[in-house]
Amino acid sequence: MQIGKKGRAVTSISTADADRIEVRGRDLTSDLMGRLGFTEYFFLLTTGREPTETQRFFLDLLLVSIAEHGLVPTNQVARMTYAADPDFLQGAVAAGLLGCGKVILGTTEIAGAFLKDARARIDAEGITVADIVTEYRDAKRRLPGFGHPLHKPVDPRAQRILELAVEKGAAGPFVGLARETEAAVNEIWPKPLPMNVSFAIPAVLLDLDFPASVLKAIPILARTASLLAHLAEESHTPIGFTLAHHAEQGIAFERTEE
């Protein structure tokens, strides 16, 4: 018995035989290798199209913007995993990536869904983004892509992304909606709530015709590079066990009553 929805058993990404590897209809060795950079290649792999120069520029920019943010939990768990088994690099990377959830790094996809849904509702219902923000406030719902424990009153990464989108002529309806949402939040929300990088990223990508279904891949791909950097450092400047020791020291043991 087949579980799940039936579909055509096909792939359009790549195929290979003894003397040729084809990727998205292009010959890997004679066409792509030496011509495309990795950012362009990632765009081709995920969309089936080669990016325009503007799409390449902003995909590069966004990957750089979110790759690294210090000793965040994803990097800590990777380093502690590596310390436990230095021969298991891929496992340490995987441990870090498993921490890319809704709280850490995973808001890009949810913020993109918010932008798409907000735009559809504004067009269909004749409401404003301020009405939608008010709904979230009244329902005490978390507004995806807003708020940051460190970056206050603004997230400099988000501001730089949107400024460059305007400067490079890449700003479209979703960047405009992001700015409208930011203004509405500043006016309506009961406490300061800065737009963070995970709201700016989907705004630009959606304006550049990047598939919404792949938005979450951007922070994951970017953070993979960061994890590899931390693990390279861990191999010669180990702090994994120090992190584990401080975690143990920082948590008090409390015996529960039976």
Score class of each variant (00 low, 15 high):
residue 2 Q to M: 10
residue 5 K to D: 14
residue 8 R to E: 13
residue 9 A to S: 12
residue 11 T to F: 07
residue 12 S to I: 10
residue 15 T to G: 08
residue 16 A to P: 07
residue 16 A to F: 15
residue 23 V to Y: 13
residue 27 D to P: 02
residue 33 M to N: 06
residue 35 R to K: 15
residue 35 R to Y: 08
residue 36 L to C: 03
residue 40 E to Q: 11
residue 40 E to A: 12
residue 43 F to S: 04
residue 43 F to L: 12
residue 48 G to F: 03
residue 50 E to T: 09
residue 52 T to Y: 09
residue 52 T to K: 13
residue 59 L to Q: 01
residue 61 L to M: 13
residue 64 V to D: 09
residue 66 I to F: 00
residue 68 E to T: 05
residue 72 V to Y: 10
residue 72 V to S: 12
residue 77 V to D: 01
residue 82 Y to F: 15
residue 82 Y to C: 06
residue 86 P to S: 13
residue 86 P to T: 08
residue 87 D to M: 11
residue 95 A to E: 05
residue 97 L to N: 07
residue 98 L to N: 11
residue 100 C to S: 12
residue 103 V to L: 15
residue 104 I to F: 14
residue 104 I to E: 07
residue 104 I to R: 09
residue 107 T to Q: 14
residue 115 L to P: 00
residue 116 K to V: 05
residue 119 R to D: 11
residue 120 A to Q: 13
residue 121 R to Y: 00
residue 122 I to T: 03
residue 127 I to F: 13
residue 127 I to V: 15
residue 129 V to T: 05
residue 130 A to D: 10
residue 134 T to L: 15
residue 134 T to Y: 14
residue 138 D to P: 00
residue 139 A to P: 03
residue 142 R to H: 04
residue 151 H to R: 12
residue 153 P to I: 05
residue 153 P to G: 04
residue 154 V to I: 09
residue 154 V to G: 01
residue 156 P to D: 04
residue 158 A to K: 00
residue 168 K to C: 08
residue 169 G to I: 06
residue 172 G to E: 05
residue 173 P to A: 10
residue 176 G to A: 13
residue 179 R to A: 06
residue 180 E to S: 08
residue 180 E to Y: 05
residue 190 P to C: 04
residue 192 P to E: 11
residue 197 V to T: 07
residue 202 P to Q: 07
residue 206 L to N: 07
residue 206 L to G: 04
residue 207 D to H: 05
residue 211 P to Q: 11
residue 213 S to P: 02
residue 213 S to F: 06
residue 214 V to K: 04
residue 214 V to Q: 05
residue 214 V to G: 00
residue 215 L to K: 07
residue 215 L to N: 04
residue 216 K to M: 06
residue 216 K to Y: 03
residue 219 P to H: 03
residue 223 R to Y: 03
residue 225 A to D: 06
residue 226 S to K: 04
residue 227 L to H: 05
residue 228 L to R: 03
residue 229 A to N: 15
residue 230 H to A: 14
residue 231 L to Y: 04
residue 231 L to P: 01
residue 233 E to M: 07
residue 233 E to R: 08
residue 234 E to N: 12
residue 234 E to R: 03
residue 237 T to I: 10
residue 239 I to P: 02
residue 240 G to E: 04
residue 244 A to D: 06
residue 247 A to W: 13
residue 247 A to Y: 12
residue 249 Q to S: 08
residue 250 G to N: 14
residue 250 G to Y: 15
residue 253 F to T: 09
residue 255 R to F: 11
